[in-house]
Amino acid sequence: MSTQDKLRPGAARKPATSPARLRSRHLLSIADLTPDEILLILDTAQAMKEIGTRPIKKVPTLRGKTVVNLFFEPSTRTRTSFEIAEKRLSADALNVAALTSSVVKGESLTDTARNLESMAPDMIVLRHGSSGACHLLADVGSSRIINAGDGMHEHPTQALLDALTILEHKSSIAGLKVAIIGDLAHSRVLRSNALLLNALGADVWVSGPSTMMPCGIHRFGVTATTSVDEAVTEADVVMMLRIQLERMRGHFFPSRREYFSLFGLTRERLRLAKHDAIVMHPGPLNRGVEIASDVADGPDSVILEQVSNGVAVRMAVLYLLAGTEEGTA
């Protein structure tokens, strides 16, 4: 059964009559998407998946379109994923890895963007260390902007590929208990996922050390607890967030050892979840810090599927945005 059929059980194989369009010409945050738009992206991604199974993994849809991958933070995983997606759609992908130093950061972004304008890229995929960087870029130029991660704010395509992965294992997102665990305060993956999962009706629990609990977390529409066991109990999905080990300098937690024992996902801890729970992680993994190796590599882990779904989701986003009107906001 396709994603689409799962989400609209009554529709069978009737073609959708609602127009396939995103209202905004940018994808800056999940917060800007309606549940219908989220479903549209997921449906389209589902269809895009098949292209990766063909002998010639290419369609001519974005032929002649230029997409610039403007990455101010190093990221092999996300950047390659976007690049593959762009190439599968026959777009011309340009990778610009801009150096960041805290002094030059702000200048580089707007100046680089203005320089890019001369190439008239159709789309810019931006990853930057400052929250709101993609909003700044959206105001500066005329290209469509896709947020590939801005500071601590959002990582929309990650949440979308997470949702697609969940739907491949669960019949629907509504009503699922999803536990998200880790450095919540600094995580853009958390914010995007909390928004998306709430929009689709999941019961979202979050857990992490109190030093890493965002201010006002209860207003995010999630249940927050410092007890990981409580969050994981009877969960359908357990999503582990990456701990940046540099956090130890901000006195957030004393050591990897203690973090792992209190918050790490081990086999025993996973037993508290439902027997058919799936384990997710946006990557890259810190084995033995947030997740035990045997869990990461175990039968419940869908981590590698997340990666392949990433390409499909990004293809869907590129395709749908490329079709948006020039003048739309």
């Binding site: 396709s2 689409q4 073609p15 959708a16 609602s18 127009p19 396939a20 369009r21 549209l40 449906d43 389209t44 589902q46 269809a47 895009m48 998946k49 098949e50 292209i51 369609v59 001519p60 849809t61 974005l62 379109k65 759609l89 869907a316 395709y319 749908l320 490329a322 079709g323 948006t324 009107e325 020039e326």
Partner: peptide
Amino acid sequence: DITLYRDDLMRHTVGPQPVLRET
């Protein structure tokens, strides 16, 4: 599904795009 191969896809941006379905 031939949506991604249509020659009129990215040309006009008026009117809704057809929904992409699986091949």
